[in-house]
């Protein structure tokens, strides 16, 4: 029965995944955050008056969570996908909380293209669509910069052609 959900959240043809370099980018971010965690654990080891098992347990928990997040990032990134249909754009994402957003080109008010420092270094870019609704929330992370620029231009052009008032 699980395939009924799969069907509900996908589109048969023209479905694009995002770059697997996004996995690397997000794992690097995770590792950087973990530097702080490691620093915290070291402080626990050094501080006097704390039973040895506390930092050991903290370290073990941190390692388990790290491995889990590492694995989760891979799955989450692979869950992203988008498809350009005749009149609208489809974006899907999420594992635990699945999401499919359908945005008509005529409703787009703004297309953002953005990339943080790590993203730029690895060559991944996020394209984000805005409509007059704050709840729309359609962003496609992990596009290669030229793919992102092309997509933005295509979306902007189609938006212009089909633009409608509120």
């Amino acid at each position: 029965m699980a395939d009924r959900t799969e069907q509900a959240f996908s589109w048969s043809e023209g479905w694009h995944p995002v770059s697997s370099r996004l996995i690397t980018a997000r794992r690097i971010t995770l590792a950087l955050v973990y530097l702080l965690v490691v620093a915290g654990v070291i402080v626990l080891f050094v501080l006097p008056g704390i039973p040895q098992w506390i930092p050991v347990a903290a370290l073990a928990a941190a390692v388990v969570v790290f491995i889990w997040l590492w694995w989760l990032i891979g799955r989450r990134v692979r869950s992203f996908g988008y498809a350009e249909r005749g009149d609208d754009l489809l974006v899907t994402s999420g594992i635990l909380f699945r999401r499919l957003v359908i945005v008509p080109y005529g409703r787009m008010q703004l297309v953002d293209v953005k990339a943080g420092p790590i993203d730029r270094w690895l060559g991944v870019t996020t394209v984000q669509l805005h409509t007059a609704a704050a709840t729309t929330d359609a962003s496609i992370p992990g596009l290669e910069p030229d793919v992102a620029a092309d997509l933005r231009d295509r979306l902007a052009r189609r938006g212009e052609e089909r633009s409608a008032g509120l």
């Binding site: 029965m1 909380f97 999401r99 008509p104 609704a133």
Partner: peptide, 20 residues
Amino acid sequence: VRAQSVRLTQGPWERALQLA
């Protein structure tokens, strides 16, 4: 005419029951 976009969402509990 006023619809801005359409979304489909599914949480884990909904998923177990094939709901969205």
